[in-house]
Design a protein around this nucleic acid. Structure first.
Lengths: 365, 365
DNA sequence: CTGAAAGCGCTAACAG
DNA sequence: CTGTTAGCGCTTTCAG
């Protein structure tokens, strides 16, 4: 690696002059000399050593990202959003992947090992002189173990601390569920079944609030027997859909797309057409939800935007423009596709629903 | 940030002694003094400054990852593999996301802007003193613009350079397609239709080789009319499946899961049962392929392993243990699920195929 | 307008 | 066994 010193020697100036010229300080050297220096730098493929520069300036222009698990579906898009915002503002990112999901599967949330791992990663980030840290959760929940003694701004993406000691950026489960329910009600549905996640889940609770609020606002009675609890996995959707259909629901609101795929399965076995005999809504807008037949109506999570907002909060704190510690809720877009249709007017399935190229219509967000 | 100097002052020793003690150099100070230093470091939450250390040692223990697009399905798992291997070997990663797919959609492959962007990113990596670089392609293809004048080892993941100037790690398309075809032949299928990607695609070409080889090895005639070219998207699968079925195929081999979902659609419209009236194989093992009804048989890409091997190659080069520039082909696992069944004995669909919890059986790899 | 000198935090060599 | 010294590559006074 060629250094500034080398260039200084070759051009018979001091390192200070080279530095000044290369950084565009006006009048650092005469015009001819400046050109000579710049030319030498290019010829030798000079690249400034970021380490030395940062050390000297006590500024790294770097944000740290701690991902609970990068391979979980929400993470890449959030990281992408952080990266995009950083790029626009001259910041770089360092990524630490804890691989929690792979290490401990679903059962890791608050083990001691998790805390130790996090502490180590945090320590490492500090050592690297990052100016702020974004923590990307792999599913939305309250984080019990909150780091303390951090030297830099810290923000949670897709999860949140018990007390608002750090800011967090989430999406608005309640409103999204409310929007979906309202849409179904407006289509004429009166008996809407719900397949939730586990009762203990934050998502489940918030979405049920939105669901119930919509019922109440439209003067419909709550029917607890139509609200069933799954486990986010496909088989539970399959199983619970049977019960709901036995109760005579005309629409099913599934709290994720995976369980919704189970509903397709059950409907097929019973000879019921989704989008005709029964309406179906999912959640998450997973990439293949458009590939179901008919295409699944679902809710898109603002993952990229969550990342962007996290980065923005951090940069604002770095620049002392703000110091809020509150939770931020971003709106979701509702995509209505052919799995749901007016309860009275039914489109021909097979002609419209099967190509998966239906225009995704954003109802909210 | 508390420094070594501060600790030295408080404990009345030189910075060198603090450094030595904290780095566990035996006999750097007396036992009592050592304890005092260590205690002071803990009390003040001392964290070594990685920048300074790396600058001094001229060693960063850092690998750079350049992702063409982190949000494309293959990228996170590859990055995860790189990260895992690095962690095991005391290396860290820096991530640069070019966001090519989002910026230019599908049409970016070799634009000038792409080259400029890459050069800038590369320059940046060098400036950060990474010791090696992994370039993660977003789809497998020959890369025309190969960087030159790099100061560190460089390896391609999921794509490859025209000439073998740098090593690359890919998966074995040919063998995977051969395995799938052989499996179908052994099940009794004689008229197998293929829905490829575009004819210009590397994947298409390699997989067709494997397909044709299997036919030849089993003494079956090539039937070009049964080999059709799609565009990786779902509608093309839907469209081409019609043609194949009209030709009377008993099995369809789709070169990705997305197009396979189109085949499900067409089959449903025609009243044909996948896995019974017609067998279907996909490619990629996308996360929801198990959610189709019946679950889609498909090929799993060794993404994590590709990442690991890339990191391994780089670290070997750093340590001068190797300097190979060849392509490496990793094997894929074939997952047989209920979308394919013996052409003569057919399982009851609906009882087995609909839960999506069929044990995935690895046939190869 | 120019460059000598100091120093960011750390470690390696070497002298005491 | 201990600590002084020099220096990694860069920027930034400040004196000439």
């Amino acid at each position: 690696m060629v250094t500034i010193k080398e260039i200084a020697r070759l051009t018979n100036v001091s390192t200070a002059t080279v530095s000044n010229v290369l950084n565009g300080k006006s009048g650092a050297a005469g015009a001819a000399k400046s050109r000579e220096i710049i030319e030498a730098a290019r010829r030798l493929r000079y690249k400034p050593n970021t380490l030395a520069k940062s050390l000297k300036q006590q500024k790294t222009n770097t944000l740290g990202i701690i991902a609970e698990d990068l391979t979980v579906f929400n993470a890449p898009e959030i990281v992408d959003g952080i990266d995009a915002f950083c790029e626009e503002n001259g910041y770089e990112i360092i990524l630490a992947n804890m691989r929690l999901f792979k290490r401990y599967h679903n059962d890791f949330t608050d083990t001691l090992r998790h805390h130790e791992l996090l502490d180590a990663v945090l320590q490492n980030m500090d050592a690297k002189q990052v100016e702020g840290i974004v923590y990307v959760g792999y599913h939305c929940r309250e984080i019990a173990y909150v780091p303390s003694g951090l030297e830099v701004p810290f923000v949670y993406a897709y999860c949140y601390p018990k007390k608002e000691v750090y800011p967090s950026v989430l999406y608005d489960d309640e409103k999204a569920a409310n929007d979906v329910t309202e849409l179904l009600i407006k289509k004429g549905h009166r008996n809407i079944g719900v397949i939730c996640g586990p009762a203990s889940s934050y998502h489940t609770q918030r979405r049920l609030c939105g669901f119930n609020r919509a019922l109440a606002e439209h003067g419909l009675p709550a029917r607890p027997e139509l609200v069933l609890y799954g486990d986010w996995e496909r088989p539970s959707g399959y199983r619970l859909a049977g019960a709901l259909i036995d109760w005579g629901v005309t629409a099913v609101f599934c709290f994720n797309d995976l369980m919704a795929s189970g509903v397709y399965g059950l409907a097929a076995e019973r000879g019921l057409k989704i989008g005709k005999d029964i309406s179906l809504f999912g959640f998450d807008n997973r990439d293949i939800s458009q590939g179901y037949i008919p295409a699944l109506s679902t809710v898109e999570l603002p993952l990229h935007e969550i990342g962007r907002v996290c980065a923005e909060i951090i940069l604002n704190q770095i620049n002392h423009r703000s110091t809020r510690k509150k939770r931020v809720f971003l709106p979701c877009a509702v995509h209505e596709r052919y799995s749901v249709c007016g309860y009275t007017e039914q489109p021909e399935i097979g002609t419209r629903g099967s190509l998966g190229s239906s225009p995704a219509r954003a109802v909210s967000g």
